[in-house]
Amino acid sequence: MRHVFNFLQSTVGRKYLMALTGLVLVFFVLGHMLGNLQIFLGAEAINAYAYKLHKLLPASALWFIRLFLLICIAIHVWTAVTLTLDNRKARPQGYQKKQAIQATYSSRTMRMSGIILLSFIFFHIAHFTVRSVPGMKYNEPGVISKKVDASNDFIPTEVPLVKKGEAVFKNGQKIMTFNVHDMMIAGFKSKLVSLFYIVATGLLCLHLTHGVSSMFQSLGIRNSFWRVRLDRVALVYGWTIFLGFAVIPIATLVGILRADPSGGLIANAQVHQQEDITHKLFTQEVTLK
């Protein structure tokens, strides 16, 4: 145990933790981005994806993964904070005139981008996971409806799970799922929220531009031959993540992505028919319950 403690106390050891947790988060954001991009395949695809994410594994496994990711973030932040404090202490008196020789903007602003990203993560979880951001009641049809019982809580409205244009039945009952598609679109309808998402993913790009290459250095598996190449990889990776995430709020704001309260069941139907069928769907949902 003493060895582990020694390792964690050293500056090098804490950088290992930062790099390893960073690696987990780097893969997580890529998976998250690829999942999100399914919104362009229609409500059917992304709702089915969300259903799989939540229902394929038991709830305990889902919580285990969530907890694991949160712990990774916590360790990443803890190492960043303690190392930063140690680094500040190492130079109590600064230079009157100091200039960076070659350090990139992204490498010098990791703390700034990191702090803003952390606040973004809190907002993002409150916004789309817990769905408790004040003023964001997702008043679009089919996302959140007010519960009529005593608790007076907002509960998600469910839509049928759709596969190849048909609702999926199990044991003679229609499988219902949360309309993630409309939740995202309702969330991004707010220009301010969308702007925050775009800025935050831009900062994520900045953070990754240094981080993706830097973690190889911290883990001791980088040399000057690979440094140049890894820096390029990091740049491409950062921009890919940025564009992959930012395209969704942008597409929502310019009207390419539209709400689909049927969850993709009648994506090709006429609008007036759609409203009619949607109405039927929801009445059906009530009778099913």
């Binding site: 950088k15 190392l83 202490k89």
Partner: peptide, 21 residues
């Protein structure tokens, strides 16, 4: 590394200013 940390030097943030200087 232990002596280096003990003497009060900071940690590496892989920005490469040392190499350039």
């Amino acid at each position: 590394v232990s002596t280096m940390d003990g003497e009060g030097f900071g940690g590496c943030t892989n920005i490469g200013e040392c190499e350039a200087a």
